[in-house]
């Protein structure tokens, strides 16, 4: 009752309270609406045809695109993860805080993180597809994505390394271990959950990416046969289905699978994050 009286005296506070409620509702409602809409429209359109091993214009299979997504994800991680982890190790373990090189690297990773994916795509197109003459190819897409996810991996690994207590390092040095041994046997293992969550974030970005891939890995709908063959990932597949305009039902089904992938990746990353909190 007293609350009601206060609000009667202060109508603006009441209006604000209502607005806050409405906005929170809008946010949650739009999330749920997007998810349920895609699921309800997509699930009935799933059929065995959509998972045939080869793509043709009759079955519009997405299985080859799923394989390609896996290839590109693994390829990108294979290159980006070691580079990213090593960069972070250098930044955290070998430089003093506030050194010039650290600053330069920090500014460049921030810049790299802010570049829109279409600019990465354009760069990949100019550099790998045209200048190096690889044409639309898996490797051109992979290298473009490496540059794109590198900042994510560097930043999360850096944070994970900084969170390792100095006593670990001192203990290891005290037992006579060298710096390298300390890094590989002590620091990196205890930073693993943090690094993992960065890697998972990167996977999410790779799976969802389309603008950077369309002019680098190209849009061939069948499973890639080698590093130089063109291939579309699931996101690009969805985009192509929509622009062709003939396959709305299949597009719904593809969107559901894509959404499912993202949910799974998200759940795994939440799980990893919880593990960090425990450590």
């Amino acid at each position: 009752m007293s609350k009601l009286k206060t609000y009667l005296k202060h109508p603006f506070s009441f209006i604000l309270l209502v607005l806050i409620g409405i906005c929170a509702f809008i946010t949650v409602a739009s999330i749920l609406f997007i998810i349920f809409f895609i699921v309800f429209k997509g699930v009935p359109n799933l059929s065995a045809d959509l998972f045939s091993f080869t793509y043709n214009s009759k079955n519009v299979s997405m299985l080859p695109s799923i394989f390609n997504t896996i290839f590109i994800t693994f390829g990108t991680l294979l290159i980006a993860v070691p580079i990213g982890i090593f960069s972070a190790v250098y930044l955290v373990e070998y430089t003093k805080k506030g050194s010039k090189l650290t600053k330069v690297i920090r500014v460049t990773t921030e810049t790299l993180a802010g570049i829109p994916s279409i600019v990465f795509g354009l760069f990949g197109f100019l550099a790998f597809v045209i200048s190096l003459g690889w044409g639309y190819s898996l490797i051109a897409g992979i290298l473009t994505l490496v540059l794109m996810v590198l900042p994510t991996i560097i930043r999360t690994t850096e944070e994970a390394l900084l969170a390792v207590p100095d006593t670990y390092r001192e203990g290891s040095f005290g037992l006579g271990a060298g710096k390298l041994r300390t890094i590989f046997k002590i620091i990196l293992p205890s930073a693993t959950p943090g690094i993992l969550s960065g890697v998972i974030l990167a996977i999410g970005r790779i799976v969802g990416e389309s603008a950077a891939l369309i002019f680098t890995a190209g849009t061939v709908a069948n499973t890639a046969t080698g590093l130089l063959s063109s291939a579309r990932t699931l996101s690009v597949h969805l985009y192509c289905l929509l622009t062709e305009g003939l396959y709305t039902e299949q597009a719904y089904a593809t969107a559901v699978i894509l959404l499912l992938l993202v949910v799974v990746i998200n759940a795994v990353s939440n799980f990893a994050a919880k593990k960090i909190a425990k450590v």
Binding site: L32, L242, A255
Partner: peptide, 24 residues
């Protein structure tokens, strides 16, 4: 419940957003 949903919103691929907006 809400916080993970918002995190999920952040990782939905942009093509899916575009598709949703196109049909709704």
């Amino acid at each position: 419940i809400v916080k993970p949903l918002i995190n999920l919103l952040a990782s939905v691929p942009s093509v899916v957003y575009g598709f949703f907006c196109l049909v709704v």
